[in-house]
């Protein structure tokens, strides 16, 4: 059995990496969509996918990464990297949809104002981005919370392997199936504490900015 601190640390590292990767492509995409009207349908598609079931993402990724699957040669199945990829894909729609909201609202508010005050378009863009930072931060925190709290992807493509891919949620499932409810609940509470702490931090950061 894994020790509790290493399970918690592994979960934070895996979901944190997934969030960083998803942020790296989601926010530029959302920004691009907020400045190019023809990309709006893409944003609607992402909005529709916000609630995509985690087991579905897990199963599709399993079919891709399985040795018999098209990406089987990568040897990624049952590794932490597979969970990172799955969770990054899982939270992308959420990140794109929320940051698009924030960015398009701020650019509507500020772009013309900045332009009339004589700002160049790059200055205006920077103003929009910096004014959007608090909102973008909360979208990232939301993505992280969804990633760290999900079970389907971690269980199916991670395999809940002790010392390698066992995360907090897969341990909770395992402890439940072993009848060790006390341990399952303890881990559940730790998970809750982590997500609550992150959202409080985000709020504090936001207040600092505003």
């Amino acid at each position: 059995m894994d020790s509790l601190p290493s399970i918690v640390a592994r979960s934070i590292i895996i979901s944190g990496s997934a969030t960083l990767i998803a942020t790296a492509w989601s926010i530029p995409l959302a920004y691009h969509a907020s400045t190019h009207r023809r990309l709006t349908p893409l944003v609607y598609a992402f909005e529709a996918l916000v609630g995509i079931p985690t087991v579905l993402v897990g199963l599709l990724l399993y079919a891709l990464l399985s040795r018999q699957g098209p990406l089987g040669w990568l040897g990624l199945l049952y590794t932490p990297q597979a969970i990172v990829i799955g969770e990054a894909l899982l939270i992308t729609p959420l990140l794109v949809a929320v940051s698009y909201r924030v960015l398009s609202e701020k650019s509507r508010e500020l772009w013309e104002l900045a332009a009339t005050l004589g700002a160049t378009s790059s200055q205006a863009a920077r103003l929009v981005l910096s004014e959007s930072l608090p909102g973008l931060t909360s979208s990232v925190i939301m993505g992280f919370s969804r990633a760290i709290g999900e079970l389907g992807v971690a269980l199916i493509v991670g395999g809940n392997i002790a010392g390698l891919t066992r995360t907090m949620t897969t341990s909770i499932a395992l402890y439940t199936s072993m009848g060790e409810y006390d341990k399952a609940i303890t881990l559940g509470l730790i998970l809750l504490a982590i997500t609550v702490t992150f959202s409080i931090l985000a709020r504090a950061v936001r207040r600092e900015w505003e």
Binding site: I13, G16, S17, L20, I21, T23, A24, W25, I27, P28, Y31, T35, P80, Q81, V84, T120, S121, S122, Q123, A125, R126, L129
Partner: peptide
């Protein structure tokens, strides 16, 4: 979008990827 805006975004993307790579190396 102006050149500096693009540069800033590119910088953010690159730094995020660098951080992710470092994390995964530390992890391994």
């Amino acid at each position: 979008m102006g050149i500096t805006g693009r540069k800033a975004i590119l910088f953010v993307i690159v730094s995020l990827i660098v951080v992710a790579v470092i994390l995964s190396i530390v992890y391994t």
